[in-house]
């Protein structure tokens, strides 16, 4: 949770570094995307960074962080407000909302948060695609998306947990639950 409401230079610097890391990871994983069985699927390493930011900086700053990430990824890769961008935006928004609620209420460890994020990211993407295409037949993607979302969600959440356990600013507050 944020210790104060004011965004200090230190916070901004840290968030900036994490933002750069998230975008670099997004780029890196798109080059190994062919390893996953579904085209267009990602491991979600960028989401690991979002989870870390959620735990370390709280909902408001994480929302700011994710907005910056979505806009930058849009500018760099997909183009702003292209169909691909809008689908990603839907996924990011829905997954962020559920992860923020899950973290705030401390329902899960970072693993559960990762699984939540992966699942609702997929749901958000399908919803936007369904609106764009005006069809419900895209729901047939749901089983495979869930099947991929569970292991990738566990992986990204686990990774975030490993990072948080080693993060001094997080351990200090004594709120890490195994």
């Amino acid at each position: 949770m944020p210790s104060s409401d004011k965004l200090t230079t230190r916070d901004m610097t840290q968030l900036g570094i994490l933002l750069a890391a998230a975008i670099a990871l997004r780029l890196a994983e798109s080059t190994v995307a062919y390893l996953l069985p579904l085209p267009g699927a990602h491991l979600g390493l960028a989401n690991t960074v979002t989870i870390i930011v959620l735990y370390l900086y709280g909902t408001h700053r994480a929302a700011l962080f994710l907005t910056a990430r979505v806009i930058l990824t849009g500018l760099l890769f997909t183009g702003l407000f292209s169909p691909g961008f809008n689908i990603g935006l839907g996924g990011a928004t829905l997954s962020f909302l559920t992860m923020a609620v899950a973290v705030t209420h401390n329902w899960f460890s970072s693993i559960g948060v990762g699984v939540c994020g992966a699942f609702f990211h997929n749901c958000g993407q399908i919803l936007v695609a369904m609106v764009l295409m005006r069809t419900t037949s895209l729901l047939s993607y749901l089983p495979i998306l869930i099947a991929i979302g569970i292991p990738t969600g566990i992986f990204t959440g686990l990774l975030a947990g490993v990072f948080l356990k080693r993060s001094p600013s997080y351990r200090k507050e004594g709120n890490f639950h195994e």
């Binding site: 460890s109 693993i111 699984v115 939540c116 566990i154």
Partner: peptide, 10 residues
């Protein structure tokens, strides 16, 4: 990993 995580995954 907590019990809730497992429940969610299941």
């Amino acid at each position: 990993m907590r019990k809730n995580d497992l429940l969610l995954i299941v």
